[in-house]
Design a binder for these strands. Sequence first.
DNA 1: GTTCTGACA
DNA 2: TGTCAGAA
Length: 136
Amino acid sequence: MTDDIRRNMALFPIGIVMKLTDLTARQIRYYEQHELIIPARTSGNQRLYSFNDVERLLEIKDLIEKGVNIAGIKQVLLPVSKDSEEATVLNEHSEVKRKEMTESQLHKMLKQQLFGGGNRPGQVSLIQGELSRFYQ
DNA sequence: GTTCTGACA
DNA sequence: TGTCAGAA
């Protein structure tokens, strides 16, 4: 996949990204502060975004429009690959494991609803309801 | 002309 | 989030 290097190659300044994503510079920088995206910098401290960064911003924008806040977006966008020691130590004892199972399922459901096809009227509540209640 | 950081009606 | 200041 030498195509990845192209997508991860920092190319455009924030001005272009603004037009590409319809987000304001303020928002883009704000999301960066919350580590939703980590653009590269020029020697002059100018932000340089890659195609991947732009796609990521589009996903973020999508979630924002669906009423998800920063905390919620982090849960959905940031790699959730961190069940290392916990799963090993307490793998047969109920509570913790059961909770992770639930969160894992919730996470899956969220991704499906958020990125999968579309939402049927009346079923969108899970996002604005559950999610915002958990990560508000 | 653009972008950056910090701050605030 | 918008917007302004002051500097790069």
